[in-house]
Design a protein around this nucleic acid. Structure first.
Length: 319
DNA sequence: AAGACGAAAGTGGTTGA
DNA sequence: TCAACAACTTTCGTCTT
């Protein structure tokens, strides 16, 4: 029996899932999540359509009121669209003078959607935002948050004297941290035309001027991504998070870079089980040096009284 | 040969006078 | 504005597996 095998017996003390008899385990945002079917706290998510039927109940009509407003479109998605096809409501062809008129209306409509230079800027900034977020594979809520921060920055005239790209990158960086899915400045800088330095400077300005409540990045936030990049199984990830939770009360965290701590926790967790990773592999996934991992590793082992040579799951982590 | 270790010097950012 | 400072990186020789 490996360490990895008996690990789960101690961590999981929750009931079993009513849907599939799988085990509930606390995920990193503190919800109870079924390990096999992913249901949160016994509540299955309804992935069905939200169409409501007001007419004959046959379900043939699919009424609703359009998509939810989004900060990702310059007009928040509140607009009317005119179909580009020359067809009437029944699908019949529209031709002749009326088709000509329709073409004219479409042109005018396009012009009214983008009214002034501010909106034009917003359009290009938001497309840059989307490009960046896509390259970094960021989820929709973070993009929304970033778009909102960017809008506020424009309102506060923070783009004056700064590049649009810089403000976009800084907004994204801030949104990632605020949503507990932190990225390093290096990472954002890698995908943006602006460098790490400028993004950092701009981020500080935005935070100060908008009074954003951005707490320091928590090492926990990096764990899922590092483990994913390293192809580590879920139990190693869960154990790394528990290690962090134990160590977070100690003084070793003070003043240390969160990425280094997270990297060391992943490295330690991987060494406790069968799927081991080298310092080099972890350092590349985490963007810190092996030396830093070694130092944090030593400190974590010291704090948790773990033998660095032959790390086993310590008593304090079992309950 | 690869991985781990640790010393020593260098770098970039923060802090406090 | 500048120097001190801590964290982190780079580099490199040595030891272990």
């Amino acid at each position: 029996m490996t360490n990895d095998d008996n690990w789960n017996e101690y961590v999981v003390d929750m009931e079993t899932c009513t849907e599939c008899n799988g085990q509930f385990l606390e995920n990193y945002v503190g919800e109870l999540e079924c390990q096999s079917c992913g249901i949160i706290d016994g509540q299955a998510l309804d992935t069905g359509k939200e169409w409501r039927v007001f007419s004959d109940g046959s379900g043939a009509n699919q009424e609703r009121t359009g998509m939810a407003p989004t900060w990702m479109l310059h007009d928040k998605g509140l607009t009317t669209d005119i179909d580009w096809r020359n067809r009437d409501h029944a699908g019949g062809r529209i031709s002749g003078d009326f088709a000509k008129r329709l073409r004219r209306i479409r042109t005018q409509h396009k012009r009214t959607r983008i009214r002034n230079s501010t909106e034009r800027n917003l359009v290009s900034a938001l497309s840059e935002l989307n490009r960046l977020a896509s390259q970094m594979t960021l989820p929709q809520p973070i993009r929304e948050e970033a778009a909102y921060i960017y809008r506020k920055s424009v309102e506060a005239k923070l783009v004056r004297g700064r590049s649009i790209e810089g403000v976009v990158a800084a907004s994204l960086y801030a949104a990632c941290r605020m949503r507990g899915n932190p990225r390093t400045l290096d990472e954002v800088g890698l995908h943006s035309r602006t460098g790490r330095k400028e993004i950092g400077r701009t981020f500080r300005a935005i935070r100060r001027e908008l009074g954003l409540d951005v707490s320091p990045a928590q090492p926990e936030g990096y764990i899922p991504r590092f483990c994913g990049d390293l192809g580590l199984p879920a139990n190693v990830e869960g154990r790394a998070l528990l290690i962090l939770r134990q160590v977070s009360d100690t003084s070793m965290m003070a003043g240390r870079g969160p990425t280094g701590i997270a990297a060391a926790a992943v490295y330690l967790s991987s060494r406790m089980g069968e799927s081991k990773r080298t310092q080099r592999e972890v350092s590349q996934a985490a963007g810190v040096t092996e030396v830093t991992i070694r130092n944090r590793y030593r400190e974590i082992c010291e704090a948790l009284e773990i033998d660095p040579e032959n790390p086993t799951v310590p008593e304090i982590l079992l309950r």
